[in-house]
Design a protein around this nucleic acid. Structure first.
Length: 184
DNA sequence: GATAAGATGTTA
DNA sequence: AACATCTTATCA
């Protein structure tokens, strides 16, 4: 039950995205703690056209520029929330999108970015939240480090820019990884 | 103030 | 493959 600290997140976003795999996503709701293994992530950096921080700081993306450990939650397509953890350093807009987790002590649909936020009641109320604070209701604990051979690296899902960047990481043969999208 | 596009999920 | 559905960004 050791929580990750700022030094884990204050590194290159690609490294953080890869190393978050296998760690435990924790969410406390009404004194119950829900835990799940992070099985799929994507990296987003400021100089990447697909990143919300690409065109500078805006009202929506402001949290991406805060210190490592800040939560960035936004609404997509008017109906689904997506959750990110901010990385690197304050003032630089970057983060890791959590796309899927494997539930450990609860049941729920968590094999997609919109589904896992719905299952764990993650909404814009948590945007700008600090997961490193002592009384956090959302945080990450160290889990089992996956064998490097079990990690797959591919292009990201659901974007129209920066498609050539292989910045998506997931655990091979894990049934909780999100399904590929139909052609747009 | 209007408009277009979007880091998705469900259904058929 | 189509659609549900609405915030945000980007103009004017």
């Amino acid at each position: 039950m050791v929580r990750i600290k700022e030094d884990f997140l204050a590194r290159d976003t690609l490294v953080v995205a890869k190393e978050l795999l296998g760690n435990i996503f924790c969410r406390k709701i009404d004194d119950k703690i829900y835990r799940g293994i992070i099985v799929e992530t994507e990296a987003y950096k400021q100089e990447d056209p697909a990143c919300h921080a690409y065109r500078g700081i805006t009202k929506r993306s402001a949290s991406l520029f805060k210190k490592p450990g800040t939560v960035y939650v936004y609404l997509i397509y008017g109906m689904y929330h997506c959750v990110n953890f901010v990385t690197q350093k304050e003032g630089y807009g970057s983060g890791v999108l959590i796309r899927a987790i494997e539930p450990l002590n609860f049941t729920g649909q968590t094999n997609g970015p919109g589904k896992l936020t719905k299952a764990l009641d993650i909404t814009k109320k948590l945007d700008g939240y600090d997961i490193l604070s002592a009384d956090a209701s959302l945080w990450i604990e160290y889990g089992n480090s996956p064998n490097s051979k079990s990690i797959a690296q591919t292009a990201r899902v659901g974007i129209t820019q920066g498609v050539d960047l292989p910045w998506r990481f997931y655990l091979k043969e894990n049934k909780w990884v999100s399904k590929s999208r139909p052609t747009l």
